[in-house]
Write a protein that binds this DNA or RNA. Sequence first.
DNA 1: GATAGTGATGAATGGTATTTATTAGTGCTG
DNA 2: CAGCACTAATAAATACCATTCATCACTATC
Lengths: 244, 244
Amino acid sequence: MPPRTALKRQVNRLPPERRISDIMAAAKEVFVEKGYNDALITDIALRAGVVEGSIYRFFANKRELLVKVVEHWFEEMLRDDAEQFAAVRGSWNQIRFIIYTHLTSIHRDPALSRLMFQEIRPAPDYRGSHLFELNRAYTNRLVDVVKAGIVAGELRPESSPNLVRDLVFGCIEHRTWAFLRGEGDFDPAEMADAITNLVHHGLALGSEPASPMESVVARLETATARLEAAAGIAPTKPASARPR
Amino acid sequence: MPPRTALKRQVNRLPPERRISDIMAAAKEVFVEKGYNDALITDIALRAGVVEGSIYRFFANKRELLVKVVEHWFEEMLRDDAEQFAAVRGSWNQIRFIIYTHLTSIHRDPALSRLMFQEIRPAPDYRGSHLFELNRAYTNRLVDVVKAGIVAGELRPESSPNLVRDLVFGCIEHRTWAFLRGEGDFDPAEMADAITNLVHHGLALGSEPASPMESVVARLETATARLEAAAGIAPTKPASARPR
DNA sequence: GATAGTGATGAATGGTATTTATTAGTGCTG
DNA sequence: CAGCACTAATAAATACCATTCATCACTATC
């Protein structure tokens, strides 16, 4: 006589929102632990307390599940960052803040960052996806800062804000790949300072090394005009080559 | 009576090098057309004129085949670049050359570049692989240029050569992702100029777009001294502030 | 307390990398 | 040059998963 529980299948009904959030929580765990390819639907189902088939009631396929998980994480992150950012003043500080918070996200959630970089962004339908829009909003803060900095006369007007965006986010990614592969660690604050300084020096209109030169020029141009007039001589011809 | 050819299986023996290069050529084609995941061993075998099982005689698995294909491409590329690079002089030109050739490779072989960025580099065993060494050699040329530039007094001594490397290669990748996804096109020469200028301004102690300035200064300093002496007047005092 | 509607199940399906048992050339040896 | 051993090459078998589907069990409604 076989036990009834073995014959009768257990069914556990729950409101859809709950089911969805259970599945997403389980999926997040598994994706983080195993990466996209090695994550098994079976495993996700097990942890969510459902059976494989049930996942397909809420998500079209494994990839959509991944996208939803990453979207959720990203939205949360954006919410947290946005309010703090509003308080920061000055282009250097704002750039530094954006770099720092981005580095902090990567440092806190390396696996999710990786999924974003490796699985989501390269997909052919990425442009046109919600995550693309979210990410655009995220990175556009930097573009806006640069534009504002140019208008305010703090940053070089020739610098392309979009290129600066790629410079900053690309640099961050490139520099954190080793960490994302699980090799070693990094200090977000320290790295943020280094990157900000390097980038900012490429942007600064009147800071460190350019400004002394400019004031020298201003002084010399004035003096020359004054003296050439006073002496009544012809203007000095351009220097043929930089001496050295 | 069944025809004998249908019963007897065809076997075509070839020297191993030939087989290997046939398989690698076929694999390259398929990986480029379909990407890693959608590339089928069956398809590769078909195009190479062998049967699936034969591929496993020469390559441990699909991933090793991918790695070998990308390695081959990368080595070829390195050989081509190296000789040209040796002829370039001056840090701005050298940086520009490195950026330009890298952009050109991406522009010429987007699919292979993508495989490198998306499939190879994120792998946990990447560090320690031959491709890692090749890539290090490739990017180290930039590091060396920056170091040399600092020693020669052309570049700011505070700038970290390694950070500059990440800035440059990261920027290039970030900016070319849309192209790698098949969206639109870009002009390597134009982009190389833009990136080089942006980066170099963050590095330049006193060259390129700064260089006109330097020659002006040289001319003015000379003229001033000459004129002030001739006119017998006191040296002009430093400009108080930049007019604007 | 029957019944329609639907959430949930778990077994089946299909596709694909990888393994393996078998076969067909090839070159060596006596 | 016939037999033999060796190995390249084959094709079928295996294993592993995402995805689908026929069926079942709960719930609300009458």
